[in-house]
Design a protein around this nucleic acid. Structure first.
Lengths: 362, 362
DNA sequence: CTGAAAGCGCTAACAA
DNA sequence: TTGTTAGCGCTTTCAG
């Protein structure tokens, strides 16, 4: 690996000072055309690539925006590459079934895609950090040293760490609750979405006693969704507090368990309004197996709009979150913040879309 | 945003020299325990986060590995976030259909996941670069200035650019052909996989005249796959050159076109061995619509092992590439290269898995 | 429009 | 074990 050329090399080659080389690269307009071309020729001739480290140090900005996500799961279940490196082609009879482990990741992937796109548009590079195991702090601190600003998925990092890091670089919170005015924040209209969907269930489908299938107790997203549910019922003169609520984790498997429970009951509710798609899909799994007809026997709805809900049968009625837009909005907010460090805290809530599909529409 | 503390601040606060602060952070063992604790206390007290730029500049390494992919498609079809920012909840009747635009991305997502995991294990940070439009060169050059090494998807960057950048930092090529001994390379066993699958079709399913559905003419991957196909036939005493070959792009839509063509023929082949899953799925789409039964009337197989092939009906028999392992292997190779800059070129070919599913197995 | 020179914050010899 | 010091490669006044 021959030593990489530096500004000095380029300057010498072009017969100018290093300042001029720097100018050609950063504010070409400030340099006479003939000089500029001379320098650019040298840049190409030497294969010069500016060092981002040196640039970042001198300019006090890196041009990188960080995006922190809690980790992909199932990390250590993976086979070691080296160990099967000399294996040969394997043949497998692949039976139907398999899980949906990728669902969570898919959510991130979409947000990531939007963030990456917007970062590019704004002239930034995106650095993705994935929280490993129980130690988001290390990763976040490390990232903090590398980026101009950090977008963090809400509640994926302890508050004190966030507070601490915020003293050095701006933080934008993604999704989740609004967390006061401490940080800039980008979220979606959870309650409005659920309210609209529930209103549809009550008004159009004529169900006056839908059962809410809630997520974890400590999920602010779920709180907001339930609030929307309640409001919709209130609008129709129904008191949500009088209706039963089922509760579980936001997991398909947990949905299956609830599905089993429901299937064993003597009487089904007319509609199950679930706090997220995963649970709804789990319930659908069981109902399909035991012969409960959806939506004829019972209407089932979800929330999130994950891909799997478009591929299930029946396809799942849900409230679709604009994940890609979330990512984009977060980066855009960060760009604004970087431009105006002292502006008032920014909050942005993105609209959602109720997707009516066969799990509710007969 | 108060000015971020530096080593000098920490050193002053702890009453030591900046060198000691640096040591505490980089080689804690070289520092007496009491001093170390004193320094760490100051680090915490001040909320100190080391600057990666300064560190990178001084140490001549950034600790970042770059991963370059050609771009996500459909970039400019996206709605502008700002424009619908004040919209409210929308309700949509979502009809079945929709495309599979995400398929390509899914491939990348998996590779990405593997790369990210391995990078973390090796103590690196991963920086993902996405080629925008027709200008991978700019992105790659920019990345080259930010990372210690660059993993590049084969044929996503012009050779001369690669050559040029390779003078500055090591390059690892991912997938695609082997490209001589110029670069380190990680790929999969394309021909072996296709050979095994084809042998199954010939031997177990008794088809002696399968039709190969090829990808683009300039795809070395497809060349390798076709070679495997030919070999398998040769093994069975059949000359592949005597059999017809269909050709298209690696796209589902193109598969549909071919499907239409085939459906219009008086007589179907007994088996269609496709160069990738997308085309096979497109063919499946059409066959399902026009009532051609798979595998009873015709066997259809793919290559890649994308998720959509697990969700189609019938589910698609295919050769599964270990995408995640590919990403991991690439990063691992890069780590080795970084450790031993002068070692001989590294080539690694990962095994694949033939997945027998209902599109071939009656 | 161009050059000289002073850092940016950190690491890594080398001394002590 | 700790401190001193010389850069790392670039940006950015400030002069000219």
């Amino acid at each position: 690996m021959p030593k990489a050329p530096t500004v000095y090399d380029v300057a010498a080659h072009a017969g100018v000072s290093i300042a001029t080389v720097s100018r050609v690269l950063r504010r070409p307009a400030d340099v006479r055309e003939s000089t500029r071309e001379k320098v650019l020729a040298s840049v190409r001739a030497l294969g010069y690539v500016p060092s981002a480290s040196a640039r970042g140090l001198a300019a006090r900005r890196t041009g990188v925006i960080g995006l922190f996500f809690p980790g992909f799961d199932a990390v250590d279940s993976m086979i070691d590459v080296a160990e099967n490196a000399d294996a040969t082609v394997q043949v497998v009879r692949d039976m139907p079934d398999s899980g949906d482990v990728r669902a969570l990741d898919l959510y991130f992937d979409e947000v990531l895609r939007g963030a990456e796109l917007e970062a590019w548009r704004q002239g930034f590079v995106l650095m993705v950090g994935v929280g490993r195991g129980a130690d988001p702090e290390t990763v976040v601190r490390d990232m903090a040293g590398r980026v101009d600003g950090l977008v963090v998925l809400a509640r994926s990092v302890p508050d004190d760490v966030l507070e601490n890091v915020a003293g050095r670089i701006p933080i934008v919170l993604l999704a989740g609750p609004r967390r006061g005015d401490d940080f800039d924040h980008v979220g979606v209209m959870n309650s409005e979405g659920m309210r609209t969907l529930t209103t549809h269930v009550v008004r159009e489908l004529g169900v006056r006693d839908p059962v809410y299938v809630a997520g974890p107790l400590d999920s602010p997203d779920d709180d907001e969704r339930y609030a929307g549910f309640s409001e919709a019922l209130g609008d129709a003169g129904i008191d949500a507090a009088t209706l039963p609520v089922l509760r579980g984790e936001y997991l398909r498997e947990r949905g299956r368990e609830l599905g089993e429970l429901l299937a064993a009951e003597p009487k089904l509710p007319r509609a199950l309004v679930c706090g997220n798609d995963q649970m709804a899909l789990g319930i659908l799994d069981v109902f399909a197996r035991v012969g409960i007809r959806v939506p004829d026997d019972v209407v089932v709805t979800g929330f999130d709009g994950i891909e799997a809900g478009r591929l299930s049968s029946p396809r799942l009625t849900t409230v679709h979150q604009p994940m890609e837009d979330l990512g984009r909005a977060a980066v855009r907010v960060m760009a604004e913040r970087l431009e105006h460090p002292d502006a008032a805290p920014i909050t942005r809530r993105l609209p959602v879309t109720v997707m009516l599909r066969e799990s509710s529409e007969g």
